[in-house]
Design a protein around this nucleic acid. Structure first.
Length: 587
RNA sequence: GGGGGCGUAGCUCAAUUGGUUAGAGUACCGGACUGUCGAUCCGGUGGUUGCGGGUUCGAGUCCCGUCGCCCUCGCCA
């Protein structure tokens, strides 16, 4: 090794030792007769002193050092003179008195400085990712990511799981997200698809008797990106045989407690709270509610029907819903302009408008709509919303779906702007009993809410035939701070129920055979009852790191337009390559 | 596909209502300096204001188009 110690290692106990450090020049302070260099690696920073008595040759050499030069320095560890210790650095009590300096590699003037306080623009960071990844924040995050994944692997290993890799080159299935396709050279006109998840393979593994499977699996979905969505991402994927939904959730409860203890040094109370999908939609308007704060939705459709306010009365008469929320003591935070912006937010989620009231002393309601409510309604609204003077009441009148979207959007916005939660806090919970099916807006038929292999609840089996819309699934989502951190289901292991579900989804026997024949076959050779879950590792890391975007948790992420600014992928290829793949570009 | 934000020196940003030669900090170059740690002090280099067009006596600023990055709706079994 070129070095004897790392840059984060030296302490007073090393004083007197001759050591060699190697790393990057973080900063230098030239005082003329002597100079200081902070040397950095991923373990920390150590101050190097080139003292006036070190010899003119060494000083001259040291003076040529610039930011991000890579050097090895040999010298003796010394206690810093009294009063010059730097308490901000773990190594700040000591310094390395340089006796020799080896320039291992110089650097061009870097476009971004890893040691700088300012965070450069993200496009620059992505283009020069190797420099960005030198920043201590990024190194901390990637090391945290490593520790999270290590903790997960240890935990599942202790619980008898085995990690099995599944193919990246698979078969396209029309359900779900858009696939990334890979043309086959050997089979003209045929394509592999990169996995959206190892779903089918892990079910096959259960049939094969590997009753506890886990995998840190890369997944691909060719859909538009978001702050919490990348086209390729990593799942902690697992599947268990001979289990019910509770068993899977309990297993993950244990994992989350372990992570909370290991990563945040904080105990997590188990079991994690559970809420049904219906309750989540009713109370929060979303299937992944942020439970760090209240601001629950309240139904006032009955009061709206009795009121004289037109938007309320007409919505109620049309069978729609009128719901709202009470933002306690928020009236003063929103001027008329601020309220207009809230209304704009509501409209962006499809609402036609927003009815607001300020609660004033009395208590009474104040707003342009207040006088149109009609006799007695204001008082009943105040009571229903448990309103106090100073509160702000917001209402949306529309279909159930629109009130959900708009009020959830408002709730999220209010929670953030009114700072209703502590920044470092994590709140984990389960949302369970999702509907089996959702209406396809285009075709009017049913689509699978999760995937076509999801088992209905045993008590809902007959609803498959009589009222599929009311049929609930053995499905569970892990929710952290308003993010869907993971989701899973108990699968169908009975081929007649599977046929029935396919039927509802409009997949006939021939199509089913063509797409999933191998799974249907497998299910007929002694498939154990099984189920599992997948956690979004990138999101889990993001939440544990307290970050607000997934790119900062990934070493080499893609931009919103799915490009890599460093490698400039995707790129063009030689005509020869296309020819071999039997592919022609048409654009 | 839709809505919004941003783009000015290598970097982070400023520039009044459209008005003189586009500034500051930092980096970089040169000099000074005995202990600094965001070193300090003195001096200097550095600009196709993303790109293209338009309006105007005059555009970093207004308009149109375009490119890039970000947020978001749709989309994401």
């Amino acid at each position: 090794m070129i070095r004897t110690h790392t840059c984060g290692e030296l302490r007073p106990e090393h004083v007197g030792q001759t050591v060699t450090l190697a790393g990057w020049v973080d900063s230098y302070r030239d005082h003329g007769r002597g100079l200081f260099v902070d040397l950095r690696d991923r373990y920390g920073k150590t101050q190097i002193v080139f003292a006036p008595d070190a010899g003119e040759e060494l000083l001259q050499q040291a003076r040529t050092l610039r930011a991000e030069f890579v050097v090895a320095v040999t010298g003796s560890v010394a206690l810093r003179p009294a009063g010059t210790a730097n308490l901000k650095l773990p190594t700040g009590e000591v310094e390395l008195r340089a006796r020799s300096l080896r320039l291992l590699n110089p650097s061009l003037t870097p476009p971004l400085q890893p040691g700088a306080k300012e965070v450069p623009g993200e496009d620059l960071r992505l283009k020069y990712r190797y420099l960005d990844l030198r920043r201590p924040e990024m190194q901390r995050t990637l090391m945290l990511r490593h520790r999270i994944i290590k903790t997960m692997r240890d935990y599942f290993d202790e619980h008898g799981f085995i990690e099995i890799e599944t193919p990246m080159l698979g078969r396209s299935t029309p359900e779900g997200a858009r696939d990334y396709l890979v043309p086959s050279r050997i089979h003209p006109g045929k394509f592999y698809a990169l996995p959206q998840s190892p779903q089918l393979y892990k079910q096959i593994l259960m049939v094969a008797g590997y009753d506890r499977y886990v995998q840190v699996a890369r997944c691909f979905r060719d859909e538009d990106l978001r702050a919490d969505r990348q086209p390729e991402f990593t799942q902690l994927d697992l599947e268990m045989s001979f289990v019910e939904a509770d068993d899977v959730m309990n297993m993950i409860d244990g994992l989350m407690a372990r992570l909370s203890q290991a990563i945040l040094n904080r105990p997590l109370q188990l079991p994690l709270p559970r809420m049904t999908y219906d309750e989540a939609m009713e109370r929060f308007g979303h299937d992944a509610p942020d439970l760090r704060f209240g601001l629950e939705l309240v139904d006032i459709t009955d009061l709206a029907a009795a009121s004289e306010l037109r938007v309320f009365r007409e919505a109620a008469a049309a069978g729609q819903r009128v719901r709202g929320l009470n933002a306690p003591q928020a009236a003063a935070s929103y001027s008329r302009k601020g309220l207009d912006e809230l209304a704009e937010t509501a409209r962006s989620f499809g609402a036609k408008g927003l009815v607001w009231f300020r609660v004033e002393a009395g208590p009474t309601l104040a707003s342009p709509s207040a006088k149109n409510l009609g006799p007695g309604i204001a008082a009943r609204l105040i009571e229903r919303m448990q309103a106090q003077p100073g509160d702000l009441l917001l209402f949306v009148a529309d279909t159930f779906e629109v009130t959900c979207k708009a009020l959830h959007g408002l709730r999220k916005l209010l929670g953030e702007t009114l700072k209703l939660y502590e920044p470092g806090h994590l709140h984990c919970s389960w949302v369970v009993e999702f509907p089996m099916f959702a209406r396809d807006e285009e075709t009017g038929g049913w689509t699978a809410m999760h995937h076509p292999f999801t088992s209905p609840r045993p008590q809902d089996l007959e609803l498959l035939a009589s009222d599929p819309g009311r049929c609930r699934a053995q499905a569970y989502d892990l929710v952290i701070n308003g993010y869907e951190a993971g989701g899973g289901t108990i699968r169908i292991h009975d081929s007649s129920i599977q046929q029935q579900v396919f039927g509802l989804l409009g997949i006939d026997a021939q199509q089913a055979r063509q797409r999933f024949g191998f799974l249907l076959d497998a299910l007929q050779y002694g498939a154990p009852p099984h189920g599992g879950i997948a956690l979004g590792i990138d999101r889990v890391v993001m939440l544990f790191a307290g970050l607000d975007n997934i790119r900062d948790c990934i070493a080499f992420p893609k931009t919103q337009r799915a490009t890599d600014l460093m490698t400039e992928a995707p790129g063009e290829v030689e005509p020869r390559q296309l020819q071999e793949l039997h592919v022609r570009v048409v654009t």
